[in-house]
Amino acid sequence: MLYELKNLKKTYGQRTVLDLERLRFEKNKVIGLLGPNGAGKTTLLEIMAFLTRPSAGDIRFEKELIDYTNGKLIDLRRKVVLIQQHPILFTTTVFENVEYPLKIRKIHKAKRKKIIKELLELVGMEIFEQASAHKLSGGETHRVAIAQALACFPEVILMDEPTASVDVENQINIERIIQKINLEKSISVIFTTHNMIQASRLADETVFLFEGKVAQSIYENIFSGHIEVDSKGYKYCVLHSGLKLRVSSQKSGLIRISIDPNVVKLNQNGSSSSMYNCFKGTLIQLTDEQSKVRALVDVGIPISVLISKEVFKSLHLNLGEKVWLNCPKESIDVF
């Protein structure tokens, strides 16, 4: 086991940004941390990089319980390296940037040169060796930051939104590098993203975070709301947008729900086997996803629906068209 987090909390003043009951990451895997902005992904990475101390809870790294008071964090930091969402390089050359971690590890000059050459080749930046680091583009900076991280010979590389601020060409390059370093160098990679397609393409495992907590299994259509009970005793979840969904749950007060896109039904005439949880909306996006088609429907909030290609063909859907969504109770998970 690489990481084991237990009852981990991080608070800033009154605000809890991370509240994880239990989370485990295995070695030598590529793990994707999914979640919207503000889900606590960056905070979690900084805690796992031993740069930020949690407010409460335990972290075990390679089974060893982390003690923040014994001054041994530097040894741990030398096993784990974090590449920030917008990496910053020192105001010197690309070569010297990659050389820095080698220098502080007191690696001999001749060996340093050889390693730097290899790493810059790996990330496709060898021709920029003597270039000024601050003149590189966002994607190039990211690639040099990866080389710099690899120069630490880490066991784990943590990457915060590795492709969020780079162009498509660099995105492909970075994804290729992630796969390569995991396969060839057996380095565990934990990366954050809010791109589900990227996570499913790259990661062996994905963990979804929402408002600082782990959302179980389904990591789409997550919304916050509160429980209301009507005069007949039926429970409803009222979302912040005002949308009211009938749910079956023992919980009360503030809750979060996820709606399984595979179970939600989409039709054009409002006909449904169920009398409740039917919403009229506008079809705003259609995406081809291997055997299925993802339809995004705006019903006051955007809800994602996965439909089979056969159903898609039979419906003759057009963007901007008014459609009906039916969310049966079994499609809604309350947590």
Partner: peptide
């Protein structure tokens, strides 16, 4: 100075003095 420099140096394995 951008705080990312501090975080970068630390994560690359620098001690407090470095």
């Amino acid at each position: 100075i951008d705080d990312r420099y501090r975080k970068t140096a630390l994560t690359l394995g620098a001690n407090v003095f470095q």
